[in-house]
Design a protein around this nucleic acid. Sequence first.
DNA 1: GCTCTTCTGTACCGATCGGTACACTGTTGA
DNA 2: TCAACAGTGTACCGATCGGTACAGAAGAGC
Lengths: 189, 189
Amino acid sequence: MARSVAQRDDLLPVLAETFREHGYEGASLSLIATATGLGKGSLYHFFPGGKAEMVEAVLAEIEAWFEGNVFAPLRQADDPEAAIAAMFTTVTDYFRSGRRVCLVGALSLSDARDRFGQALRRYFALWVEALTAALTRAGHPPEGATALAEDIVGGIQGAVVLARALDRPETFERILGCLRARSQVASSA
Amino acid sequence: MARSVAQRDDLLPVLAETFREHGYEGASLSLIATATGLGKGSLYHFFPGGKAEMVEAVLAEIEAWFEGNVFAPLRQADDPEAAIAAMFTTVTDYFRSGRRVCLVGALSLSDARDRFGQALRRYFALWVEALTAALTRAGHPPEGATALAEDIVGGIQGAVVLARALDRPETFERILGCLRARSQVASSA
DNA sequence: GCTCTTCTGTACCGATCGGTACACTGTTGA
DNA sequence: TCAACAGTGTACCGATCGGTACAGAAGAGC
């Protein structure tokens, strides 16, 4: 029983990577079976709802990972400026400098958006919210903090698109560096 | 003969919209047949290469449209600042404030990227190039112009992702307004 | 030993996939 | 008038799709 839970959770990273690489439609069950090394029997045992339930589970795990590694630190860190800086390095690592797609962003551009809309919306809403809080605590004027947070979160998503299309990871890192600079409070000298 | 050419070209917008809405894998031939009102016979008459050729044709038409409406004006306009401003309004209109997906960006995030990589790369490269030229002519220091152009083009792509995920077209317009402001040369008072 | 539950592989389902074959319509130019 | 051909509809192809059924392997608790 405890074993099954552990196994199901172990599948999620593999599932996530498969959906990242092939999208929702493109990730066929046979592809998923190959990637996970499991037959349909096992897959439907863990995810009776089929592909849709797999994506839901993956999205939940992604949100949990970001909650623990990005959102919560942004909200709670003693040093908000350091937390924001850490966010940029964490995200650069997570997206492999743009070589790895953001599943949430990719799904948002696909027709799967309508099916998983709530999870996609919440992911970005939480991110913007947490970053807004950190920016405010770091000294940014509250009236512009949300806008800046949206600029940054959106900028990161755009950097993934651009770096992937141009096949230039350096572009991803350069853009994130620029966003990071904008996140710093302009202090006179 | 002239008629067939006209008809084939007339298909492209419908095809483009279908691919935008459903992606490469999701846009099945039966869906395309329904959207265009043509049977498989006609579709394969116009596009013997099947779906792949349809996407190629659509991407070529998109590039041609941007070349005429965005890239060329950026490169050649007498007033580069006005051309950049016009780009933002044109693009806001084209992407329906983020309600409409950028097909090139969406394909870049999908596994179709490998198949159409060259066309995707060229679209963004041309855009960055043309915008860099306009920014430089508008008075931006040449060493930072390409970086700013990348920020803007990437920022637009990210705005599409974010606005679609959050279901907030206002966010798209706000981000584009911010990017537009950054494109203006900082003049002392 | 046994039972009960968890987990797995395989066979199978109807539907749909992308693509092909081909007969047919309509128009056009000689 | 008639051959040539662009354009179309339909039937069909094998392959694969997501999903189901189910028998049996594997392991835990007793």
